[in-house]
Design a protein around this nucleic acid. Structure first.
Lengths: 334, 334
DNA sequence: TTGAAAGCGCTACCAG
DNA sequence: CTGGTAGCGCTTTCAA
């Protein structure tokens, strides 16, 4: 920049203005400066120096609590990241990826990242990387939860959505059954009748159970009689297994599943009973497979959430509750 | 840092050394400095300032010539990126993503990115973003090609690999057929017997055709008699179509496809003839579907290429030719 | 409309 | 082993 100033016969400041504050320089001077800059192969202010001076990097960190390839294997994650990317494009912000090593995100990388804010994807409670991010004093936003102190959480109202989708699933049902995510890190497979949601450790599981319970009660069903199958994870096999193992004991006429995968697994086992209307099934996520299978489910826009998360992490004051809808298809009775 | 120095009763330099050059400070002083730093909530050198001074950012740009979600939809791309991420993890380098907007990667973003180098994924020739990256004077590496001046290209020896896989596919063949990528941007569907590879615009297509030709000649076949079906793209439907449309005219006993997708499409049409050994089929990529289908194919480690690309872009002198292997399975005669 | 001074937070270089 | 000086490239503030 100094070189350009010398060559153009002006002060450094004028060059700086020519690039960053066009209105503060006469048009003529500006043109001349820009021309000499071009001739000298100077393409504009150095971003690093700019940020140092301004105290703002214009970069946003995305922390993946998994290996990069692994994180992007999940289509949901991709939509979320894509939302972040869009927000970054709009605000001319850079996207810095902080993927996991084999053994957790290196805390020093999070701390040292030259960024204005952080977005986290699927953190577990007490993640040291999250703590490190919060400790930097820069805005932090995490998708889905958990809500650690100091970090904003962008998510949908799980309880309300659960109640709403359950209302569809429970229409005309007398013997419903719930396919749940694990209750806690133990990830123990077990069946509990009418569990107390408040005693469930995982927030997502807790909130959805609350919604299911509300819908069940509203439908005049006794929560205490409803079997909740806690699985080890959100896999199709898990949903299928729940049905094979438990169907004889308690033949359900409605299945509320916390994910499309679980629901799809159940549907494999249920077969034609779903099509005939003998059993209703609802899922969660609105995956493409769910659409193909005609599954009634909860749709949330992860893309929208990505945008919101990015804006929060960039310091905007935005409402963090995202929208959701229940997509009613053929897997439920009307 | 100045604060810490004052509080610890040492010079700023000593604090700097305590963090960055442990060996240049007495252990005792170091401990004291670190302790005061901790007490003051100072967590180490500011990365931005550090890079400004050192002239090195320790960040690497990855330019996606597609939307972020779209780029990561491709499993090959994910492996490549994952290799980059690993290299970054190893060298303690940050990963800056420069995804495409709707209408191309903004040139100013690649120019202004505060990074030490660039890695490009699937660029077309004459990409202005590539030119901008090269213009920065920082090292640039692109996967697969094209080889624009100033940018390193990491890739496998397509010709050699093609010859090698074709050798498998042509074993015992008298009437082979080739399923090719498009020859140029026109992407016109056409069948050419014994085309001259040198006149094919797309480098990948050109190189592979050369390899196929060499193998054909080595097998005593006349290149001029071999039909090459140029498709519009690398889709399964494209491979299938080629067979349906052309099989009656020229019933092949061997099919050399430039991608697993094309090969898989052909196999659908060929049905049991592949299993029986009446027709050999080879693909390229070693996708999981290829493995499931028992397809003989070329395997290249995109992950390895990602690592190489990252190291090049970070300024290391590394050999850019990556390894490949032919995976022989049941789709070819032994 | 233009410019001089000061300093963002840090480290290479040399001196002690 | 420790410290002073200078300056990375820029912009904010104030003055002309």
């Amino acid at each position: 920049m100094a070189d350009v100033a010398a060559a153009a016969g002006v002060s450094v400041m004028t060059v700086s203005y020519a690039f960053g504050r066009p209105d503060r320089v006469s048009d003529e001077t500006r043109q001349r400066v820009l021309a000499t800059a071009d001739a000298l192969g100077y393409s504009g202010p150095h971003r690093g120096a700019q940020s140092l001076r301004r105290g703002r990097t214009n970069d946003l960190a995305v922390v993946l609590t998994e290996t990069l390839a692994f994180a992007f294997d999940d289509p949901h994650a991709r939509r979320f990241f894509s939302g972040i990317a869009d927000a970054c494009l709009d605000t001319d912000t850079g996207l810095v990826l902080l993927p996991n090593a084999r053994d957790g995100v290196a805390v020093h990388r999070v701390r040292d990242a030259a960024v204005d804010g952080y977005v986290f994807w699927t953190t577990v409670t007490g993640d040291p990387a999250l703590a490190a991010a919060v400790a930097t004093g820069r805005p932090v936003c995490v998708q889905g939860g958990p809500a650690d102190a100091g970090a904003a959480v962008v998510t949908i109202d799980d309880t309300a959505a659960a109640e709403s989708v359950a209302r569809e699933g429970l229409r005309g049902a007398r013997r419903p059954m719930i396919l749940s995510f694990p209750a806690d890190r133990g990830r123990r497979r077990e069946v509990v009748h009418g569990p107390d949601p408040d005693r469930v450790a995982f927030p997502v599981t807790r909130h959805r159970l609350r919604g299911y319970r509300a819908a069940a009660r509203a439908a005049g069903l006794s929560w205490a009689d409803i079997p909740v199958v806690f699985g080890a994870g959100s896999f199709r096999a898990e949903g299928r297994r729940a049905l094979t193992e438990y169907r004889e004991v308690h033949a359900p006429d409605a299945v509320l599943a916390m994910s499309d995968e679980l629901a799809l697994g159940a549907m494999v086992e249920l077969g034609p009973d779903v099509a005939s209307g003998a059993v209703s099934v609802v899922g969660w996520d609105d995956s493409t497979e769910a659409a193909d299978a005609g599954l009634t489910t909860v749709a949330q826009s992860l893309h929208e959430q990505g945008r919101i998360a990015a804006r929060i992490a960039l310091g905007s004051e935005v409402d963090t509750t995202a929208h959701w809808t229940v997509v009613t298809r053929t897997s439920t009775r009307s």
